[in-house]
Design a binder for these strands. Structure first.
Lengths: 219, 219
DNA sequence: ACCTGAACACCGTTCAAGT
DNA sequence: ACCTGAACACCGTTCAAGT
């Protein structure tokens, strides 16, 4: 009576079946862990295959090369980033534009600092020579959320009516810069949200003293 | 009469002397070229040794490992960055604070986009676990230039009297963000200086319309 | 359709031995 | 003091062969 269950145990745990079943997602999911723990440089296809219990040639059926696997991780990352940004940007009654902008900004830097290696991978992948259209689409969908936010700010009269792209780039550069400083430990993670809010405020209202109007610097 | 010069030719060009003479600087200088052409990932100690014409074990006398060579490149990079920033910040009669700040900002993003792989290496090296004090000192010397600029702005009454570190971080984040966008080709290099100037202006005077003072968003 | 395993051409690192 | 060259343990990629 026990022979069948013993046999199954052996097949499922000790001696894996010849076909893994869902090697592709197993690779991606393990790869994301390794990415988080060891960075892009610490991610090796052979080690991945070893961890999962499959031969080192097996991943090739699902990813042409290492680059292809990294690109898939990046696409997944952009999709998750987009979700986080859209949730933060979703309308809340009584919330000021500055409040919404701050919330979205904090959502961005939170994602970025929770997934430092992934974020870096996302941008280097997108920047690559032969980046897939799938990757570009995923990236653009993320950015579209932020562009919509700038348009909303202009419509509500809380952002200057200048070139949409220019304003969007400056805002995005600010977020990316804070991210970069946080991920290289130049900003303490405890003061991250506070600094992000301060940066949004500075960007909206300026760092120059506002009490006196354009005091001459000499004479 | 020709035998001596022929001998020298053979020694110097065909058959290299056993001792290279200045292998350390030869490695660093070739490494910087490779870094520029192929990025950090494309830099291999063995290839470097091959290019210079020395055995693959030779670099070990001068750099304990690959990391040590990269760190030396980073230190060199911070020294050059500091030079560029100090030149841009050096006093010019009749120049407004905003003018100086813009000039320094442009100097930073110019260095960063002229040496994209080097800049990335500089920050990842500094961020490393066992980063040398030499590296930290070189990095801090670069940042000190920018901190001095913020203090000057406050002294001239053109920057709000808030926390020096907070203001410095926001400014620096902006520059680092623009750098990141430029190096991933999200900003066209032709409009880089212009956008940098615009970002400085936005940071000083704000992106919110200034004609009406704090218009309520509802009611 | 999916996976294995040998083969190839690369790495970084170590270290006894050579000059 | 500096460099060589064999050795070791890793890679990514390819591909005939197995199930």
């Amino acid at each position: 009576m026990l022979s069948m269950s013993t046999f199954c145990y052996a097949v499922l745990v000790i001696q894996r079946p010849y076909h893994h079943g869902d090697l592709r997602s197993a690779l991606l999911s393990r790869a994301e862990e390794t990415l988080r723990e060891a960075g892009v440089d610490g991610l090796s296809l052979r080690e991945l295959a070893r961890d999962i219990g499959v031969s080192h040639g097996a991943p090739r059926r699902h990813f042409r090369d290492r680059r292809a696997l990294l690109d898939s991780l990046a696409v997944e990352g952009f999709a998750r980033l987009r979700g986080a940004l859209e949730e933060a940007a979703s309308p809340v009654p009584e919330r000021s534009f500055e409040g919404t902008l701050s919330t979205v900004a904090v959502a961005y830097v939170t994602f970025a600092t929770d997934n430092p290696a992934l974020l870096e991978l996302m941008f280097t992948s997108k920047h690559q020579a032969g980046a897939s259209t799938e990757l570009h689409d995923a990236a653009n969908a993320s950015f579209a959320t932020m562009a919509a936010l700038v348009e909303e700010g202009q419509a509500r009269g809380e952002l200057t009516e200048g070139d949409l792209e220019r304003i969007g780039l400056v805002l995005f550069a600010m977020l990316q810069g804070i991210t970069s400083l946080a991920n290289t430990k130049m900003i303490d993670s405890r003061q991250l949200d506070q600094l992000t809010g301060y940066a949004v405020e500075a960007l909206l209202h300026g760092l120059a003293p506002r009490t006196e109007s354009a005091a001459g610097s000499h004479t």
